[in-house]
C-alpha cells in the first residue's frame, strides 16, 4: 500500500514538471559563453571590414599547422585566409594567440557538409556567421 501511494505521488509530481528531453530542431540548449565551436573572423562595427591584418600569430600557434594566410606586400592587407576544418581539434590556441581579437570561436556547431572540399573554409565562409565586434557605447 505504501509503495503504491509513493509511486502515485511521484507520477503526479512529474506530470507538471518540464520534460528533460530537448526537442532539438525546434528548441535548443543554450550554449555556454566560452564554448568552442567553429572559427569565425570578426568584423569592424563601423566600416564592415575584417579586423584581421594577417600578422600570422595564429599560424604559428596552431599545433597542427592548419591555417594559411597570404598578405599583399604593397597594401599590407589580407589577401586570403584558409582554415582546414576537417583536421581541426578545436583547442582554441589560435583564439588565445590573436592580439587584436579578430579571430573567435563561435557558437555555431552545425557544420555538416556533403563535399569534402567544402570543409576548407575561406574568408567568405568564415565571415558568414560573424557578428560585428562588441564595442563600448560610451568612450572613456
Amino acid at each position: 500500500m505504501k509503495g503504491i501511494l509513493r509511486s502515485l505521488i511521484t507520477v503526479t509530481r512529474n506530470t507538471f514538471k518540464r520534460p528533460v528531453t530537448v526537442l532539438y530542431p525546434h528548441d535548443r540548449i543554450m550554449v555556454p559563453y566560452n564554448s568552442r565551436g567553429s572559427i569565425q573572423l570578426m568584423v569592424d562595427p563601423d566600416t564592415r571590414k575584417i579586423l584581421c591584418d594577417g600578422c600570422g600569430q595564429c599560424e604559428k600557434s596552431c599545433p597542427l599547422k592548419l591555417i594559411s594566410i597570404e598578405v599583399d606586400i604593397n597594401n599590407k592587407k589580407l589577401k586570403s585566409f584558409y582554415i582546414d576544418i576537417s583536421r581541426c581539434m578545436f583547442c582554441g590556441f589560435c583564439e588565445e594567440a590573436c592580439t587584436k581579437k579578430a579571430l573567435k570561436m563561435s557558437f555555431n556547431y552545425e557544420l555538416t557538409e556533403k563535399d569534402f572540399s567544402a570543409l576548407k573554409y575561406d574568408i567568405k565562409k568564415l565571415t558568414k556567421h560573424a557578428r560585428p565586434k562588441l564595442r563600448k557605447f560610451w568612450k572613456t
Binding site: P32, S35, R36, F90, G92, M105
Partner: peptide, 24 residues
C-alpha cells in the same frame, strides 16, 4: 558534463590546465 562545459568550453576535451595555473 554541462558544468564542465561552462567552466572549460568543451564537454569531453577541456584543454584547461596550464603549466603554472589554469587557462581562465
Amino acid at each position: 558534463l554541462h558544468l564542465i562545459e561552462v567552466a572549460t568550453g568543451s564537454r569531453l576535451t577541456p584543454n584547461f590546465v596550464r603549466i603554472g595555473g589554469i587557462k581562465s
